[in-house]
């Protein structure tokens, strides 16, 4: 029995050779998109910042700023001419709006709307939007239209839009559910 343990120990001491870099590259290519579905975050070590001499640190930004101002002073007249020439006779027009005759807002002016709703029309800030991932669902293997199998993942999001009216301290939050479906191709086994 002891002899068997010795052989076992001896064999365990042998290390299988790792796959060659060329072979690993082949595997990476074959994996394709599936290879980057799961990622590992690597710790980042920030390189030490070498301190430059004081005179260099002080004069370099000053020089860059002076150069920028000088360039702007030279270019500005040409720039204004170019802008006015290019856009003064612009043919870009807003696309036509189509009136929805069945809308309850049809024929109602902004002033009337403000009175009816009690919500100010003017003075709103640009809305801020935020995308929230709710969950990711693995929906298993599905058939593509081509007949080839694929793994289907469904991502559920909530898109939030916040409207702010500082004058009346009014906030309106709208939420819209959204889904995205990803298919990862599989090969028949």
């Amino acid at each position: 029995m002891r002899e068997l343990d010795e052989i076992e120990k001896e064999l365990s001491g042998l290390t299988p050779r790792k796959p060659s870099p060329e072979f690993s590259e082949r595997v990476e290519e074959a994996l394709g998109e599936a290879g980057s579905v799961a990622m590992k975050h690597l710790p980042v070590s920030n390189p030490p910042i070498e301190s430059a001499p004081y005179s260099f640190r002080f004069f370099l930004p000053m020089s860059v700023a002076a150069l920028f101002l000088f360039s702007f002073y030279i270019i500005y007249p040409y720039l204004t001419n170019f802008m006015s020439d290019d856009f003064s006779g612009s043919s870009i027009k807003p696309s036509n709006m189509v009136e929805d005759l069945e809308s309850p807002l049809h024929g109602v002016t902004s002033e009337e709307l403000e009175v009816f709703s009690g919500v100010p029309v003017e003075g709103w800030l640009d809305p801020s939007t935020y995308e929230r991932l709710i969950r990711r669902t693995d929906e298993g293997i599905v058939d593509r239209a081509t007949g080839l199998p694929a793994r289907q993942y469904r991502y559920h999001f909530i898109d939030e839009t916040l409207w702010t009216h500082p004058a009346t301290d009014t906030r309106i939050l709208t939420t819209t559910p959204r889904q995205e479906v990803y298919l990862i191709d599989l090969e028949l086994y």
Partner: peptide, 18 residues
């Protein structure tokens, strides 16, 4: 800042599997 997990996995098990 990140690398695919399969590379680490393959580095650990690739030789034995091969």
């Amino acid at each position: 800042l990140s690398e695919p997990i399969w590379k680490d996995w393959f580095g650990r098990h690739g030789g034995k599997l091969l």
